[in-house]
Amino acid sequence: MSILIDKNTRLIVQGITGRDGSFHASKMKAYGTKVVGGTSPGKAGENVDGIPVFNTVKDAVKETGANTSVIFVPAPFAKDAMMEAADAGIKLIVCITEGVPTLDVVTALRFIKEKGACLIGPNCPGLISPDKSLVGIMPTMIFRQGGTGVISRSGTLTYEVVYNLTANGMGQSSAVGVGGDPVVGLYYQELLQMFENDPETDSIALIGEIGGDAEERAAAYIKEHITKPVAVFIAGQSAPPGKQMGHAGAIISSGAGTAAEKIAAFEDAGVPVAKEPSEIPALLKRKR
């Protein structure tokens, strides 16, 4: 088992003829993901690395039975792409695009929920269930199939943690990058619940960062609902207030959203917090 994606995932790539879309479509296909199609308005009938291209998501779903979509279109068009996927009956929409206006995400997310679908991202590296399926841009060679579920707001920091897990003989059930923007789709709570319910997952690594209070709420949720061992790393302990640290969501405003508050919340909930990413495997093993 794993969460959200596996061997049954049938993926379409929105924006497949673009530079990033075509590059990652091939990468995902090479990894073994069932990439059944792509979309690019006006380019139906073409193919990218043997993957058929359709004009609309509806056409692609009708022809291929796709259930998942990954979006690589430029930011001004991301809202439309997310809504198109939801309207076509796609159940899991993963938006990689960075720089999408927040109110576009707010509106798209409302529509996606209305259609009974789920969103991951935007501004995220996607997700992977090692040896089963990759939907996104993660570097596959660092992942191994195993029992640790990974949830993260950051891309490269996820890789850093996964690298340390794999080097310590701890594979991953699934790893999900939720995205670095203030408003994104699935978040800690939903994913913690999925990992808790997934029989293959035996521990969970959560990688948070400054900004907002999602980590504080996750800590409370873990205390109440999660029985599997969890270890945490929080980035941004040295970040100054009021400055956006790369990710649009990573900003300490009016003294709220600091790393210290988040770390305290996890410690209060009995969840060990790593001082550096390389400590995570030991913290998870200790609790097994």
Binding site: S154, G155, T156, E209, A235, A239, H247, E276
Partner: peptide, 14 residues
């Protein structure tokens, strides 16, 4: 990467 960049600063401080 933004997350890794933040973590790098943190660990320098650590």
């Amino acid at each position: 990467g933004a997350g890794l960049a933040m973590a790098t600063m943190d660990i320098i401080q650590l």
